[in-house]
Design a protein around this nucleic acid. Structure first.
Length: 292
DNA sequence: AAGCGAACCTGGCTGC
DNA sequence: TGCAGCCAGGTTCGCT
């Protein structure tokens, strides 16, 4: 499900019920997701208080009061839902009513507040693990994770540096989490359309011989930022499932210019028809008229 | 070494 | 109605 805007949307939904609350009980309903839960995972969480819920790329990070960090990744199909009992007063009445567990509910966090937070993941490509918090950017799975595209200093110069000497199509490298953290298939397609850049353009061509960013590099960096910010403002994209922990749907899928729109006219009305191709095994959608 | 395809897993949709 | 085939917002492994 989730790229950066969806993960950020989930973070904003979970933060009010996680930050400041403690894990009263953690129930694992199977032994693994994409990878096994670490030894004594539930026991190590029990009693710990969440000091902050952060996002890094597509990861959610809960800083705990004993200097460890709960690391969570939603994979393709992971979602959280918040169950509040009738007594618990928690602003939006959009929270799910407490009820029976469903298929693929793999983790249940019972928080000290009385709220339950349930992680559901049909395909089990998600991940939960614990790490020492001292220097998390230098410990797996974060060692080697790329730049944050919403950081203040993300620019065409960043792209020029990351793409230097690379011959792969820019679309493939935009999705490489070791370079840029958080951009996935949808937003790579949408950003390239916004910047009017062909997904096939070799990545190395975004810098001049002297290493300076090209005009297109600046345009692409701006487009990435704009599309991610617009998607976050819209609550992310909801394709098949709802993505928000509060149960509401994201809205950005209604604004896709190219993603999953093969055969439809380009929104620029330039006479182009959206085409589907494949890069690195993933569907790519683009307009061959305005994207060069 | 970079780049690509396959694998991991389940569910939903399409077409016969 | 049933079933086969294909596709899916991600990551990782193994082969050129």
């Amino acid at each position: 499900m989730p790229e950066l805007p969806e993960v950020e949307t989930v973070r904003r939904g979970l933060a009010p019920v996680m930050e400041g609350a403690s894990f009263a009980k953690v129930e694992l309903r199977r032994g693994d997701l994409r990878a096994p839960f670490p030894p004594r995972f539930a026991a190590r969480l029990k009693g710990r208080r969440v000091e902050a819920l952060r996002r890094r790329g597509k990861f959610l990070l809960a800083d705990l009061d004993n200097q460890t960090v709960l690391i969570m990744h939603l994979g393709m199909s992971g979602s959280f839902r918040i169950l509040a009992d009738g007594e618990t007063r928690l602003a939006p009445d959009t929270y799910h009513r407490r009820g029976k567990l469903r298929a693929h509910d793999h983790v249940v966090f019972q928080m000290s507040s009385g709220v339950q937070i349930i992680f559901n993941d049909p395909r089990r490509f998600g991940l939960m693990t614990l790490a020492g918090g001292s220097d998390i950017d230098h410990t797996p799975p974060f060692s080697g994770i790329g730049v944050e595209p919403l950081a203040d200093d993300f620019s065409g110069a960043t792209l020029a540096r990351l793409f230097a000497g690379r011959r792969a199509p820019v679309k493939a490298l935009l999705m490489d989490q070791r370079l840029i953290a958080g951009v996935g298939n949808i937003y790579a397609c949408e950003a390239l359309w916004l910047a009017r850049i062909s997904p096939n353009r070799p990545a190395g061509r975004f810098a001049t011989k002297t290493g300076k960013p090209t005009v297109a590099a600046d345009r692409l960096a701006t487009a990435i930022r704009e599309v991610l910010e617009a998607a976050i403002a819209a609550g992310g994209s909801s394709l098949r499932d709802h993505i928000r922990a509060t149960g509401e749907l994201g809205e950005f899928q209604h604004r896709f210019a190219v993603y999953d729109r093969a055969g439809k006219p380009c929104p620029r009305n330039d006479g182009g028809t959206i085409r589907r191709t494949v890069h690195a095994g993933r569907s790519t959608f683009y307009c061959p008229v305005c994207q060069r």
